[in-house]
C-alpha cells in the first residue's frame, strides 16, 4: 500500500503509462476508420486513468457487420476491479459488450443503446473470461471496433 502522499504521483504515472501504452498497442497502420477507432480509444484512456484504471494489455481492434459478433478471451486476476471499454467508428450506431465466465455464465454486460459500452466488474475468481463484442447497429458495414481492458486494485473501505 502506497503512502497517501505518493498516491497522486502514482495516479499521474498511471495516466502517463496508459497514454503511452495505448498508442503502443495501436501501432497497426490502418485506414481512416481504423484511425477513428484508435482515436476514440485514446479519448477513453484518460477518463479511466482518472478513476485509477490502467490498461492490462494491448487493445483489440477488429471489424464487424450488423448482428455479427466476436469473442475474445482475457485473463483476469481475483480481487481486482476491471473496466472493459468498447468503441467503434462513426458509422456504428450500437455496440454491446458481454463478459462471461463460460458460455452459460454471464458475469456482466452493457447492452445499452450507445456505441461506447463499458463493463465494470470486480472479480472474485481468477481465470479466463470471454468478452463478446456484438455489433448491433452499423450504418455502413463493416464497422470497426476497439476493445481495451483496464484494471485497478480493489479500493479497501476504511
Amino acid at each position: 500500500m502506497l503512502p497517501p502522499r505518493l498516491a497522486p504521483i502514482a495516479q499521474s504515472l498511471g495516466l502517463c503509462a496508459s497514454l503511452v501504452a495505448l498508442p503502443a498497442a495501436l501501432t497497426a497502420q490502418g485506414d481512416h476508420w481504423d484511425r477513428q477507432t484508435e482515436a476514440a480509444l485514446r479519448q477513453a484512456a484518460p477518463l479511466l486513468a482518472d478513476q485509477g484504471f490502467q490498461p492490462t494489455g494491448p487493445a483489440r481492434l477488429g471489424m464487424l457487420s450488423v448482428d455479427e459478433s466476436e469473442q475474445v478471451t482475457i485473463s483476469m486476476l481475483a480481487g481486482r476491479s476491471y473496466a472493459i471499454v468498447g468503441v467503434c467508428d462513426q458509422d456504428c450506431g450500437n455496440l454491446d459488450l458481454v463478459l462471461s465466465r463460460s458460455t452459460r455464465q454471464e458475469v456482466a454486460s452493457d447492452r445499452g443503446d450507445g456505441n461506447v459500452p463499458i463493463v465494470k466488474v470486480t472479480t472474485a475468481l481468477a481465470g479466463s473470461y470471454g468478452v463478446k463484442i456484438i455489433m448491433t447497429a452499423c450504418r455502413m458495414g463493416p464497422c470497426r471496433y476497439g476493445v481495451a481492458v483496464y484494471s485497478k486494485p480493489v479500493a479497501r473501505v476504511p
Binding site: 457487420s65 448482428d67 450504418r139 455502413m140 458495414g141 463493416p142
Partner: peptide
C-alpha cells in the same frame, strides 16, 4: 466486372 463488388464498396456489407 465490378458488378456487385461496387455495391459493397459504395454501401458496405448489406444486412444478413
Amino acid at each position: 466486372s465490378f458488378g456487385p463488388c461496387a455495391w459493397y464498396a459504395r454501401f458496405g456489407t448489406p444486412s444478413a
